[in-house]
Design a protein around this nucleic acid. Structure first.
Lengths: 219, 219
DNA sequence: CTCGATTGTTAGAGCACCCTAACAATGTAG
DNA sequence: CTACATTGTTAGGGTGCTCTAACAATCGAG
């Protein structure tokens, strides 16, 4: 099995590829807080192990094997998050850091049991899909709230690049997955949106927030 | 915080000191399946960090700091075992290997929550005491079954050096912590003992088994 | 098309941990 | 009290992962 370090590289590669498409040495270097030469030599090592296709000066590409391995790490991470929230009573803003640690545990039975105990979920507490045991990822049908138009009714199904501060923000506004928004107005100047939250209270979100909220158009 | 490796050295040092008294380089080498020179240089490193007192050709001695650090690793291990059994439905023979992995997680909140969820236990599923958050270990009042005499009534409170095969043996004989034994006979030739288990069935155990069963004399 | 910024690469080194081979100290049996 | 087995130590090397310094390739602006 892959080392702790390798698992982290794979996870980062997987995440960056899913949000940015092409992944360069520098992207990984920033994301993992590791120097570029370190990433460079790790890239060669990962290629050696068949996880990565690497050519000088070209973007990094996970192979099928690499994608599967990465997805299985993500699976462990997200199952853990789900377990922490559902079975252990943690808040959705507390679980990322713990899961970051637990995901490296090498004990398949442990994660299988978590999966069972939380009822074989398909998404984690932040609405991100949980890859299956074969490493397949189900795409969720969603768009950014910022891409929706006035008059639409949507429901929150996930978050893009969720961070502790985003989660805290949402908590403080009483927003959770599944909540609905009626889009009342979009400010042309800064892209901020005014919505009716859960059919009750008016709230205004900055563009930055709206870009992070992934919604589904049949609320 | 100590690395994964250092935590394992500390744990081994702690365990060996508790069962054998003096701990030599070779003991650790065997216990951790690591060469003697490796242990030797690690011993110097641990001394450097104040975990150990090391003098050439002398037995290794954990310092107070070392004992505390070791106890806290043991605490994480045993809390995890307890959690795995009580909350996740694993058998007492399955939890050691998983806990071996999970114990290295660096997330105090994770273990604190486990502690809470299993009701602040003082012993793990094998009857071993769980050190408190300050690293203090409560001694259990017990003796080996092999040291008891005919006629005594005792109850099982713990195991010495529990191993998967011992646990499987006990399971297959329907024996669990808390069960009682009335000592009927001790075979002088091989030290095997015949007892009445739970006031019901007669069973005979080899000396090897009796030395692993820790019992309490007021059943 | 050239220049400068960005991005990527090489070279060289360090740290943590592991090993084997060879040798030295210790403890024990005769 | 010597002789041998056991135990411990030194020396020297390897792997995985990290870094900085210096240089090379690529890309975009003017």
């Amino acid at each position: 099995m892959a080392s702790h370090t390798v698992e982290n590289y794979l996870k980062a590669l997987f995440a960056l590829a899913n949000e940015a498409g092409e992944v360069g040495i520098s992207d990984l270097s920033d994301h993992l807080a590791v120097s570029k030469p370190s990433v460079n030599s790790m890239a060669k090592a990962l290629q050696q192990d068949g996880f990565l296709k690497y050519e000088k000066y070209k973007p990094l590409k996970l192979t099928a094997k690499g994608k599967k391995a990465a997805a299985l790490v993500v699976r462990k991470h997200r199952l853990t998050e789900m377990f922490l929230v559902e079975q252990m009573g943690f808040g959705w803003d507390e679980v990322h850091d713990i899961a970051e640690q637990v995901e490296h545990v090498k004990a398949p039975a442990f994660f299988d049991r978590m999966d069972e105990l939380v009822g074989f979920p398909t998404v984690d507490p932040h609405g991100s899909p949980i890859p299956d045991a074969q490493g397949n990822v189900l795409e969720i049908d969603c768009v950014k709230l910022s891409e929706c138009a006035v008059g639409e009714k949507v429901s929150l199904v996930g978050l893009s690049q969720s961070s502790k501060s985003l989660l805290t923000f949402l908590d403080s506004h009483g927003i959770a997955l599944g909540h609905t928004f009626d889009i009342r107005a979009v400010e042309p100047f800064d892209g901020s949106m005014t919505v009716v939250h859960q059919g009750a209270t008016d709230q205004t979100f900055s563009l930055k927030v709206c870009e992070r909220l992934l919604v589904n158009k049949e609320a």
